[in-house]
């Protein structure tokens, strides 16, 4: 990256700025580090740890908490449920949203203009979820789908659909339309042009969108706690429930927080390039 900033030509300014930046970055990483440090402590070290709680320096670390928690059937079930629901919701949203994004990017709509359709999809994302949680709960109860992964897939796919539409709309707009037109002239038809030409080119974007919406479903709590209590328990609900039944056991809380946080963090690092565009719903191009 080029040197573009004011006052950075001077060596001392650079050093000061770097030091401040390092401090800030460490400050933001601290809570996650703290949860990790707690997950390695013996119960006896919980409150007595000095300094920054650095393993081996301030206390002798142990993996017992991890072994205990990951060996609990409830934890395994929550991790399994969260994985299944997040993957299914992401795939479903991609299947529904990608053709819609293609339609908005490539075709002209008249009565409702293309931008109106995009904004309509987006408005759904801005709605407060608490407004739909009660009727959704009642509908699922009526259908006998309470506490099922299926119900959670349905609602999460709905929530993440706007992300797919907006991210992929931009992707298709960025693809050269000429290749698809050539395919149309060769008699491929619009569906063929979409399926055989545009879709393979959009695959990397779809993967990135898929990762981001996986993380969003993984982190979702309101609907998870309303719909899934035992059979369809999700990771955040499991964390909340464990506090209620077992009390505040910081060492286990550290493990549970880490198991929840690690998968979306890995995704964030992989999909870095797409985060700005994704999370601003395409309003800012990162």
């Amino acid at each position: 990256m080029a040197d573009r900033a004011p006052g950075s030509r001077n060596g001392w300014g650079e050093v000061t700025a770097s030091l401040v930046a390092v401090t800030v970055a460490l400050l933001f990483a601290f809570p996650i580090y703290w949860a990790f440090s707690q997950s390695l402590r013996n119960p006896i070290d919980t409150y007595t740890v000095a300094g920054l709680g650095v393993p081996w320096i301030n206390f002798t670390p142990t993996l017992d908490n991890w072994i205990d928690q990951l060996g609990t059937p409830e934890t395994v079930k929550a991790l399994y449920n969260s994985t299944i629901v997040s993957v299914s919701a992401a795939l479903l949203a991609l299947v529904l949203g990608t053709p819609a994004a293609y339609a908005i990017a490539r075709f002209r709509f008249e009565r409702w203009k293309n931008r109106d359709i995009t904004v309509w999809f987006l408005s759904q994302r801005i709605l407060p979820p608490v407004a739909t949680v009660i009727p959704f709960y009642l509908t699922m109860r009526y259908l006998g789908l309470l506490d099922t992964k299926f119900a959670l897939v349905l609602i999460n796919a709905t929530f993440v659909l706007p992300y797919v539409v907006v991210i992929l709309r931009q992707t298709f707009l960025d693809l050269p339309v000429e290749i698809e037109e050539a395919a149309l002239i060769d008699g491929a038809g619009h569906f063929g042009a979409f399926w055989r030409v545009a879709l393979p080119l959009a695959a990397p974007s779809m993967a990135a969108a898929g990762l981001i919406i996986f993380a969003l479903t993984w982190n979702e709590f309101l609907f998870a706690v309303a719909i899934g209590s035992s059979d369809a328990i999700m990771v955040p609900v499991h964390i909340a429930g464990a506090i209620d039944t077992r009390g505040v056991q910081f060492w286990f809380m550290g493990v549970r927080a880490m198991t929840a946080i690690i998968p979306p963090l890995i995704i964030a690092l992989i999909a870095q390039r797409y985060i700005v565009r994704g999370l601003t719903l395409g309003a800012v191009r990162g």
Binding site: F28, A29, P31, I32, A35, A215, W218, N219, F221, V235, P236, I239, A240, R256, A257, M258, A260, I261, P264, L265, I267, A268, I275, L279
Partner: peptide
């Protein structure tokens, strides 16, 4: 990192 950390955790 904070952006994607599970809010409940």
């Amino acid at each position: 990192l904070p952006i994607f950390a599970t809010p409940l955790a």
